[in-house]
Design a protein around this nucleic acid. Structure first.
Lengths: 219, 219
DNA sequence: CGACTATTTGAGGCGTATCAAGAAGTGTGG
DNA sequence: CCACACTTCTTGATACGCCTCAAATAGTCG
């Protein structure tokens, strides 16, 4: 079912030199936690990539975020996770018990403010995504996605996307075919090229033109 | 330009019996603050309704939320407002200086946790809206909207929507015509009726059937 | 009442989804 | 290393849901 790496290879490390944390690894497509489960652990991506998503009863899926190294995910204020989280590729995470975090937060205002700051970052992202999902064309969505990944993934001559077209589609609220067609169109426009070996490795040849497709806020 | 009520009729009240607050009134369609302005004030709706939205350079608008009595809005962690806020109908709000709130928050952990709780509520709403905007049909969106308003507006035999079809459309990521057609369809299905006097007053005759159109999460 | 805005409804077009098939890429076992 | 099965990705043809444009009706406000 799953490829190489093993699950939950434990060792002791620290997060922010404050919390005792365990390290765990997940194979590609392995679930880290499920929508509705009791939210007892908080995660930080160390290596790899993670997707958070919701699914409707008939299978329609909306990915709300991709979590990349240094991102924190799985922090909830309610009793359960609001999303399912899965490894996009083999991934290693740091894990800390939520209870520990909250215990510290009751006395340490700095920690509470950090949690607040995390929540506000997620909120801002979600708000931008609402604009994208509600009002942008598929080409604009794909352009925005590429620019987001270009900014968040390690700087390099090629953009090495860890996720499939299906993941991209479910993140952008379109179909796989539409993502594929839009990428082809961007290639035809001379804005990008695919690397020889893999279609997930993309060279952005014309970032200015790409940013031109990514409509911004008024004024 | 604007109708009846006057702007910023001040009087002194308290928010949560803790903060000294000013009261202000805004006429229908009057701007409370603009996207990009310095975020110096935090608001609580006392009466009426407020919309928060972003606009793209070419005029496309996405309303991220409607704020109803007791909702807090305009609280930012960055230096500026990320949205424009306008009165949907004549509205009265309580205003508190952000600086005051933040000063208290540095010492009072309860206040910080309240801010956190506000942010988490907004986040959860934004995440549900992402699912709606990315994956639901127009009829499902309208159904979800009616159920949301039915829950949030004062309980009554009629649902008295304060906003126009345009506002609803820009909240749901569709056009005015689509909202109108979907409402007509729901009427044809016997799920709702319009009140005699106004098309914004809706009687929900069959909430179970309406909820049936509002697809939920898997499992 | 008259002007204006909001809403509904119809006709037709467009953008994205769906369905289908082939190409490209990946992983497995011989 | 190759052969095979499987998944991912691309591309084409067609369908359909929602948008656009247009006009009539309903509602609001001076």
């Amino acid at each position: 079912m799953f490829s190489r790496s093993s699950n939950k290879v434990a060792s002791v490390v620290t997060i922010h030199s404050t919390f005792c944390a365990t390290e765990a690894s997940y194979a590609k497509d392995q679930e880290i936690y499920g929508q509705g489960e009791r939210a007892e652990l908080v995660y930080e991506v160390k290596r790899g990539a993670v997707r958070s998503y919701k699914v409707l009863s008939d299978g329609r899926r909306q990915i709300s975020a991709f979590h990349l190294p240094h991102d924190i995910f799985g922090w909830e204020i309610g009793p359960t996770y609001r999303f399912t989280a899965e490894a996009v590729v083999d991934a290693t995470v740091r894990v800390v018990r939520r209870q520990t975090l909250e215990y510290v937060a009751t006395t340490d205002i700095g920690v509470t403010r950090n949690l607040l700051s995390i929540a506000m970052k997620e909120l801002e992202h979600a708000e931008n995504q609402m604009m994208l999902l509600g009002r942008k064309t598929s080409l604009e969505r794909v352009a925005a996605f590429l620019l987001e990944m270009d900014e968040r993934l390690p700087k390099s001559s090629v953009l090495a996307l860890p996720m499939t077209r299906r993941d991209i589609a479910d993140y952008l609220g379109v179909t796989v075919e539409t993502v594929s067609r839009d990428l082809s169109q961007l290639r035809a426009l001379g804005i990008l090229r695919f690397a020889e070996d893999s279609q997930r490795r993309i060279v952005l040849d014309d970032r200015p033109k790409l940013q031109g497709l990514n409509v911004g806020p008024f004024a």
